[in-house]
Amino acid sequence: MSRSTRKTPIRSITTYRSERDDKQIWHRRWRAHQRTALASTPLDDDGTLPESVKQLSDVWCMGKDGHLYWSADRQKRMARLFARRQGRGRKERNALEARLRHKHMGK
């Protein structure tokens, strides 16, 4: 997987790497709510509990707010901008730009 690339260049908006902790907290809360609801109320006709998933958590309160499409042109511009700020010589800037473009397309 070290050479895999993204098929669709969509990235998260924030610098948060993963929503794993937020999802674990949400699922614990949801399962606890379902257990208490099962113990106290009867099921509906179709065998499910009358509870909405969105009542216990809000997606906008989690670490990542959403996603953004990063086109190849935008990736190139951002890599060039960063390379101009950080690189000292032309050779170093070109190497830094190539490294950043490779990093953005990696999984």
Rank of each mutant, 00 (worst) to 15 (best):
Arg17Tyr: 11
Gly66Tyr: 00
Thr8Asn: 06
Asp46Met: 09
Asp73Ala: 11
Ser71His: 03
Met62His: 08
Ser57Cys: 15
Arg77Asn: 11
Lys23Arg: 13
Ser12Ile: 07
Arg20Ser: 12
Trp60His: 15
Gln55Glu: 15
Leu56Trp: 10
Gly106Asp: 13
Arg90Trp: 10
Ser71Thr: 04
Asp45Pro: 10
Arg11Trp: 02
Ser52Tyr: 13
Arg99Met: 12
Lys91Ala: 14
Arg11His: 05
Arg17Ser: 07
Trp70Gln: 05
Tyr69Glu: 11
Met62Asp: 06
Lys76Tyr: 07
Lys64Arg: 15
Ala37Thr: 06
Arg85Ala: 13
His102Ser: 12
Thr48Asp: 12
Cys61Trp: 12
Thr36Pro: 00
Leu56Gln: 03
Leu49Ser: 01
Leu43Trp: 05
Met78Phe: 03
Lys107Ile: 14
Thr15Asn: 09
Glu51Ser: 09
Pro42Gly: 06
Gly66Ser: 04
Trp26Pro: 00
Asp58Pro: 04
Asp46Trp: 06
Arg74Thr: 04
Ser4Phe: 07
Arg77Gln: 14
Asp73Val: 03
Leu81Pro: 00
Arg28Ala: 10
Leu56Ala: 04
Lys7Glu: 08
Leu38Gln: 09
Leu96Tyr: 02
Ala39His: 07
Ser2Trp: 06
Trp60Asp: 13
Asp45Phe: 07
His67Tyr: 15
Arg88Cys: 11
Ser52Ala: 14
Met62Leu: 13
Arg88Lys: 11
Thr15Ser: 06
Glu51His: 12
Ile25Asp: 11
Leu38Pro: 03
Arg101Ile: 01
Arg101Thr: 04
Arg77Asp: 14
Trp70Tyr: 08
Thr41Cys: 11
Gly89Tyr: 05
Asp22Leu: 00
Trp26Tyr: 10
Ser52Lys: 12
Ala79Lys: 01
Asp44Glu: 10
Ala83Lys: 02
Gly63Tyr: 04
Ser40Ile: 06
Asp65Ser: 11
Ala37Ile: 00
Gln24Pro: 03
